[in-house]
Design a protein around this nucleic acid. Structure first.
Lengths: 328, 328
DNA sequence: ATAGATTATGCTCAATTTGAGTATAAATAA
DNA sequence: TTATTTATACTCAAATTGAGCATAATCTAT
């Protein structure tokens, strides 16, 4: 608008990347691709081609189909990242990156495991898994490193306090992206080093970081950033929309539902209260069947697609409990 | 990636549009521009130019500064729309539209009212304002029209049920975008007619709609869609983050805070309980001053920037009350 | 067959939160 | 001075929440 003169470069390539998550066998996984020799994994992605893709979601489904052969259920746009320097595609064209979240069910066909398969998401965000209590690395590695960084960068203090729950603030499991971004800015994840070999604060970072940044595992391009967004969004959405059921198979025990919820939230929950919560929510109905496993058989439930229901389409308002590690 | 051949068109223009909202004198307003003769208003917007704008937010701030001269406080990305046919820029290039939400304080300088000024957002979404009870137009106009549409379009029934709270479902004030999208698909808002003069279901729509679509007021391009997204996001965010205070002046009475909250949510709230909620939340502290108005003077409060606080950075978990119109 | 071990499920109980009022206070307008 | 208006305090029952204890139904190891 207004004074847009035609010599300005507005020519842009849009890449669409999708974090496909599932809960499988007690592990929160994402669909990862390997690209042969390269070490870092990536998400399925490809360019948005308006001539072929009427919408971005159509484009995304095409790339996902071609690259990993998975059919997606729930799909949701996450965020559009456009900062220069966070995405090195190299071809000179400016790249804008649109991230999507997709959910898949735990048990799938056997062929979908070819060429890269599923990887443990918490391997890339180990500080996010609090199911067995607060991870050691937070106090042993992350906090000291952040403190060192803050000494030269005090404006970030309030953000660190909020994101990492310091100085009396509470840890909020939804701030996954905020934490990753701070670790990136502090030069504590590999992507930060990779993206800015001659960047603005290379000196500072080298001085600050005696130990090499080895927090979690790097991904290609901005894919870990997108994955962080995905996890944060899923954690928050759980609480106000019944998305957890998109991760569940057709029928499931309440224990399985709880484990999946804990997996996503990265916290342990009180079993009896979780049961009460779920039963009262009306999202679930008993099938009459039971599952055989170790202890007493558990009733199998199925998701009640709320078609004739009258409840407010809430999520599971889980609230974590007061102490640290719950009552496993 | 993979089989991207170079003949494909991936050349894209990105437009950044910003819905700037404020609560002013009991009215929820957005910053609107007029463009002279054209009837429909628009939001401030302009192209993203990667050479000039290191991030999209920088670009947005530039367009906002140039076009409306407002300084923004809270700014947040909403969504990236890329469906063809919803944005007629005409120049042949594919346009992708990124929407942003910005909040401004109620009372601002006098000069910011030049060239377009602020418009009442609910004039564009009259079905969203339930402060005086359920709007008549819902049962008199919208529901019958939707029923007519559904008769030829049954797959949308579940969406309508959820978005408009029919058949036992509850009205959820956050589903602003979903409602607008359905009205658009049903051909009940002017933009739908404007965007598709020779579109796929023109016949059907003409047959279905005896009365011309006059729901609310149209905006240019996809700006009403973006505004719907903005309102929905703000309504939902209110409940889990203290964003309401970004709409408030430096000091305010609890009544003013409540009115702003009601304005955004479009519902009436119980006064005494709102007070209790806010006081307990710890977000607010008394200043000792009082405001003089009609009745008994009210204490003036200010927002406590939660710097040394220990509360979970929640929002105001307002819940609307059970009956329809609350206890004004 | 029996004693754990293991898991599921039922139930209690106090603390807290929530929805909905009633009551009182402090100002202005008539 | 009285009515009106708004603010604020307080009550009360219902519902929700956090935390456990208790019991049930199965499997595993002896």
């Amino acid at each position: 608008m207004s004074d847009t003169n035609t010599t300005d470069n507005t020519d842009i390539l849009i890449d669409i990347s999708t974090a496909i998550l599932r809960a499988h066998d007690g592990v929160l996984q994402f669909r990862a691709l390997d690209d042969g020799g390269k070490s870092a994994k990536r998400l399925p992605f490809g360019p948005f081609m308006p001539d072929r893709h009427r919408t971005m979601e159509i484009g995304l489904r095409q790339w996902v189909r071609e690259q990993v052969g998975v059919d997606l259920a729930h799909v949701e746009q996450l965020y559009t990242f456009a900062d220069q320097g966070r995405y090195k595609s190299g071809e000179g064209r400016h790249v804008v990156s649109v991230g999507y979240l997709a959910l898949a069910q735990g048990r799938m066909g056997p062929e979908d495991d070819a060429g890269g398969a599923w990887a443990n998401l918490y391997g890339y965000f180990p500080w996010e898994d609090w199911r067995d209590g607060r991870p050691d690395m937070l106090d042993k590695i992350i906090m000291p490193a952040l403190d060192k960084w803050l000494a030269q960068n005090d404006e970030a203090r309030a953000r660190v306090r909020l994101a990492f729950g310091r100085d009396g603030a509470q840890w909020d499991e939804e701030f996954v992206l905020e934490r990753y971004e701070l670790l990136y800015e502090a030069g504590l994840v590999e992507e930060a080093v990779r993206d800015a070999p001659h960047g603005r604060d290379t000196r500072a970072r080298q001085k600050q970081t005696p130990s090499p940044p080895t927090l979690g595992t790097a991904m290609q391009l901005d894919h870990r950033r997108i994955s962080a967004t995905a996890l944060g969004r899923l954690r928050s959405k759980l609480k106000y929309r019944p998305v957890i059921f998109d991760l569940m198979p057709d029928r499931f025990t309440l224990r399985a539902l709880q484990q999946t919820t804990e997996l996503v939230l990265g916290t342990a929950l009180h079993k009896q209260n979780f049961r009460r919560l779920v039963e009262k929510s009306g999202f679930v109905e008993a099938t009459g069947e039971t599952s055989r496993a170790r202890g007493r058989p558990a009733e199998l439930f199925r998701f009640r697609h709320g078609n004739r229901a009258d409840r407010p389409l809430a999520g599971l308002r889980v609230s974590g409990g007061r102490k640290s590690s719950g009552s496993k």
